[in-house]
């Protein structure tokens, strides 16, 4: 599965700026094209184009303040771009409300997790499931399945406010998975986890792609995890695209080495 997805992506990799842009993204893609977001004078995201398909895991990396979260906000409808377009499965969805995009297959997690703290873990998941139109009993059963999948079964009836950090992050992912996403956007899922936990999470993310058949865009600072997990990377710095390509290509890119690794080390 991983292999086939990989070769598929190799196949489609050169699709950065081709004639496809004129007719929009394909059925299986989520795309930002020429997206610009500014906050007052701050150029948070400047003319960034990125697209990924439903069997890809793409890493979105860059130093703090590079605009990664802002780009994810734009892709998920939480931030209206000042210019540029967002395209979902061949449809222009620029300006769609975030809840509508979520129901149409673009799910996300948050850097700050943002669980429904006063609700139980199961209710956190059921809320998402019910908004996709599931019946109550079906939602309850499905929530149990998803929690089992993420090894959270014994947490179902705890209040979200009572979770430890690692569980909290996994519940965040579970809630996004409950949306039956075609595209899953993960904002620093491994932040605050120890090495072992981060590794485990990496495996979970890889298996989510296979088991749920969705494309994953993951923001991550942990380079070891990124290198292992992602088939393709998109590097942002000060709001602009610095480099794109396979992890090996990006690591070899002089611009990346200068700006990113140079700044980090």
């Amino acid at each position: 599965m991983v292999n086939s997805a990989h070769s598929e992506h190799m196949h489609r990799k050169p699709c950065i700026w081709t004639e496809a842009d004129l007719k929009g993204c394909s059925d299986m893609e989520l795309e930002a094209s020429g997206v610009t977001v500014r906050f007052g004078g701050i150029r948070a995201v400047e003319n960034v184009s990125l697209r990924f398909g439903i069997h890809e895991i793409v890493g979105l990396i860059g130093p703090n303040g590079a605009g990664k979260t802002t780009l994810v906000n734009a892709l998920s409808g939480f931030q209206k771009p000042r210019s540029g377009r967002i395209c979902l499965a061949g449809k222009d969805v620029t300006g769609w409300r975030s809840d509508a995009l979520a129901r149409h297959g673009v799910a996300r997690t948050f850097q700050a997790v943002r669980l429904f703290r006063g609700l139980t873990v199961a209710e956190n998941i059921e809320t998402a499931l019910l908004s996709t139109g599931l019946a109550r009993s079906a939602a309850r059963a499905r929530a149990r399945d998803i929690l089992g999948y993420l090894h959270l079964s014994n947490r179902a009836d705890t209040l979200a406010s009572g979770l430890n950090y690692g569980d909290e992050r996994r519940v965040g992912i579970a809630r996004a998975l409950a949306m039956e996403p075609k595209f899953l956007l993960l904002d620093e899922p491994a932040a605050g986890l120890n090495i072992g936990e981060a590794e485990e999470l990496g495996q979970t993310i890889a298996s989510i792609r296979d088991d749920f058949g969705c494309g994953i865009l993951v923001i991550e600072h942990n380079m070891a995890l990124v290198m292992k997990l992602c088939e393709r990377l998109h590097v942002l710095a000060t709001g602009m695209t610095l480099a794109t390509g396979t992890p090996t290509e990006v690591m070899a890119d002089p611009a990346f080495k200068d700006a990113y690794l140079g700044a980090e080390t």
Binding site: S76, F78, R97, D99, F110, F116, R117, L119, S131, M179
Partner: peptide, 21 residues
């Protein structure tokens, strides 16, 4: 009401869970 309570806990996250707040 479950959706509404979710929005009470966190409006932004509720939208990400598809809730029409």
């Amino acid at each position: 009401c479950l959706a509404l309570r979710a929005s009470r806990e966190d409006e932004v996250a509720a939208r990400s869970a598809g809730v029409r707040v």
